[in-house]
Design a protein around this nucleic acid. Structure first.
Lengths: 142, 142
DNA sequence: TGCATGTAATTAACGCGTTAACTACAACAA
DNA sequence: TTGTTGTAGTTAACGCGTTAATTACATGCA
């Protein structure tokens, strides 16, 4: 059946929920002149090491055209380095640079505080439950 | 504590979930040359009748600058009409037009099918539970 | 070797999100 | 009436999402 009101509409609810959560993180990112997507890319590079563009786009949930722009921006600020893959001139390999790692480290404490606050206010159990449901929804639809 | 991996990161999970759900609706909207946000605005106008811009932006979860653009597009296609509020020259009142209502009606059956399919695959109980959790998260953060 | 097909990445075009600045009008007090 | 303050909406600037087209390179087959 169709949702009666926008509040019980799944797309709307997901949108609002994400907005509500991101509102907590945005000021931190803005203070360091990093966009949400640039931050996701940096985190993946930080956690996964040198990665090819396609895999990076996938893991950071960014579309290829966006990744091209993000790479340009991050490379310009020396946060990452960009090299062609040896053996295949089409592929590009991205690596986090010292300045990028430094940014990750600098923001981690604040990230933790925000995340903890959300978890505490929402409840650990409910958060786990929500993550499980979301994971299930994603797997079911994709 | 910080999420171990991006899969258990709340912002990421919400993003992915929304992507997964919207992927089902996007083709329908694209086929009628309506963006997601234009569609939300039309739905609100359809359900709530003539509304002022500020309230419309709020209910459709669209920021004022975006609403200005959306109004321009929808007015151009005769989906809505735009009038100044009597008594206050600043305010703008939006009303759905016949062509707009016709679009809503034309898409409703397909919308229902998609929504039902999601609900059936995901499970009615889980959907309700998810909506409850999202609602709670939104209320807690906002 | 040479050509067709496939793949990785980029570019292009258009719309929205976001923040900040600006315009137009209203409300209110001196 | 006039000047100040506040509010509604718009415009501007920049980045991302999305789809489609394009470029550069690789692969496979004749």
């Amino acid at each position: 059946m169709l949702p009666e009101n926008t509040r019980r509409s799944l797309p709307m609810a997901l949108l609002h929920a994400r907005e509500a959560v991101m509102a907590r993180f945005r000021p931190m990112l803005a203070a360091h002149d990093v966009t949400e997507q640039q931050w996701r890319v940096l985190r993946v590079l930080s956690e996964a090491g040198p990665v090819e563009a396609t895999e990076l786009a996938d893991r950071a949930s960014v579309l290829p055209p966006s990744l091209t722009r993000i790479i340009k921006a991050l490379e310009g600020r020396k946060f990452i380095t960009r090299n062609k893959a040896e053996g295949d001139g089409r592929r590009v390999v991205l690596t986090i640079a010292p300045a990028g790692s430094a940014l990750i480290d600098a923001l981690s404490p604040e990230r933790r505080i925000i995340y903890d606050d959300i978890e505490q206010r929402f409840g650990h159990e409910k958060l786990e439950q929500l993550l499980d449901l979301l994971e299930s929804l994603i797997d079911g639809e994709s």
